[in-house]
């Protein structure tokens, strides 16, 4: 099967007017209001889940988004897909700003932009057969003509993700975690997307299965030239799959660089601590590694620290860091760091 058979160009190609990046995110903010009071509810504060995030993703590129729980990486992914409407900022997809687009007008974009979820158990409808789960996007977006064509296409998709097409009549509970994740990928592929948000797609899987899924995602990317936003907390997985990597902390990007550059030369003190905390599966190397153990927990996003949000746990912070909000600034080689001390 070639990319031509999967990607039937036509009107859908018109979505891409320019030759720029597939996706362009600028100063994205998602604030969840905190309200109090009975009957008369007033907003008393906001959880700043995403607070001024900007990046581009080129066609066929993978941008890794790493961070610990509560850093806002999943909310970023959801805000890009307009599953969570952003509070401010813009999300340009193929030259169109999606933030102001109505739900109805989002429809054509919904097939172009897909998502793969972490939990292969929670993200598949238990009452639908695998065939229906994968076939539904085909019907919704009018991508398959009659019943037979739809069936053939589902079979083709199942085969492409490494499963036996005969399994299309089975239900989610009959599959293992790895197989369910493959069904989730086939469902995403059904819309012939040019961009997929992969939200922790392998974190719930065992190591031996994780490798199979990662290899599958790379193969699909090179075959169909899909862009990925790969959200994960596992830095080793992100290094493996990403072209560029952005490190998030408390709703902000701390460092963004090409994958090799970031891992060889981590510059932000948070990135350095994060990297040193990940053990390498080799006792000989591990024994010689230096560890930076951070004190304490991530502060609450309701009341983030003034100045640099990382300063409360930062080993090199000074009084200045409480005053100045660091901007993501260029350090050469496409390496951007938000720190006034490096």
């Amino acid at each position: 099967m070639t990319s031509e058979t999967l990607r039937i160009d036509g009107e859908r190609g018109a979505l891409f007017a320019s030759d720029g990046p597939t996706l362009s995110v600028r100063d994205l903010r998602v604030h969840f209001p905190i309200t109090s009071g009975f009957l008369i509810r007033r907003q008393t504060g906001a959880v700043k889940a995403v607070d001024g995030v900007s990046f581009d993703i080129a066609p066929g590129e993978t941008l890794g988004l790493v961070g610990e729980s509560g850093s806002g990486k999943t909310t970023t992914g959801r805000a890009i897909l307009q599953l969570q409407r952003p509070t401010a900022g813009s999300v340009e997809f193929g030259g169109v700003d999606l933030t102001g687009v109505s739900a109805k007008k989002m429809r054509p974009f919904r097939s172009e932009m897909q998502i793969i979820f972490q939990d292969p158990y929670g993200s598949l409808n238990p009452r639908m057969s695998a065939g229906r789960i994968i076939g539904e996007p085909l019907t919704v977006h009018g991508l398959a003509g009659d019943k037979d064509q739809r069936r053939d296409r589902v079979a083709e998709l199942l085969e492409r993700v490494g499963m036996n097409p005969a399994m299309m009549n089975r239900y989610p509970h009959e599959f293992s975690g790895g197989q369910r994740q493959r069904i989730g990928i086939a469902r995403a592929l059904a819309g012939e997307p040019s961009f997929i948000v992969c939200d922790e797609p392998v974190s719930a899987l065992d190591v031996s299965i994780q490798a199979q899924i990662l290899n599958l995602l790379s193969d699909l990317q090179s075959e169909f030239n899909i862009s990925y936003l790969f959200i994960a907390h596992d830095l080793s997985v992100v290094r493996h799959i990403s072209d560029r990597v952005a490190v998030m902390y408390l709703g902000k990007i701390m460092e963004l660089a090409p994958s090799a550059e970031l891992y060889e030369n981590p510059t932000h003190p948070y990135t350095r601590a994060l990297m040193s905390a990940v053990p390498i599966p080799d006792p000989l190397i591990e024994r010689q590694r230096e560890r930076i153990v951070l004190a304490g927990d991530m502060p609450s996003p309701i009341n983030p620290p003034s100045g640099c949000v990382f300063r409360t746990r930062c080993p090199i912070a000074t009084d200045e860091c409480a005053e100045i909000v660091p901007e993501l600034s260029d350090h050469g080689n496409g390496h951007a760091v938000a720190c006034i001390k490096v």
């Binding site: 031996s208 490798a211 290899n215 997985v237 891992y263």
Partner: peptide
């Protein structure tokens, strides 16, 4: 099959089938 922090991205993972 484990991706390593110290391994270059280009290497393909050898998965257990």
């Amino acid at each position: 099959s484990v991706p390593r922090l110290d391994a270059a991205a280009s290497t393909r993972l050898t998965s257990i089938e």
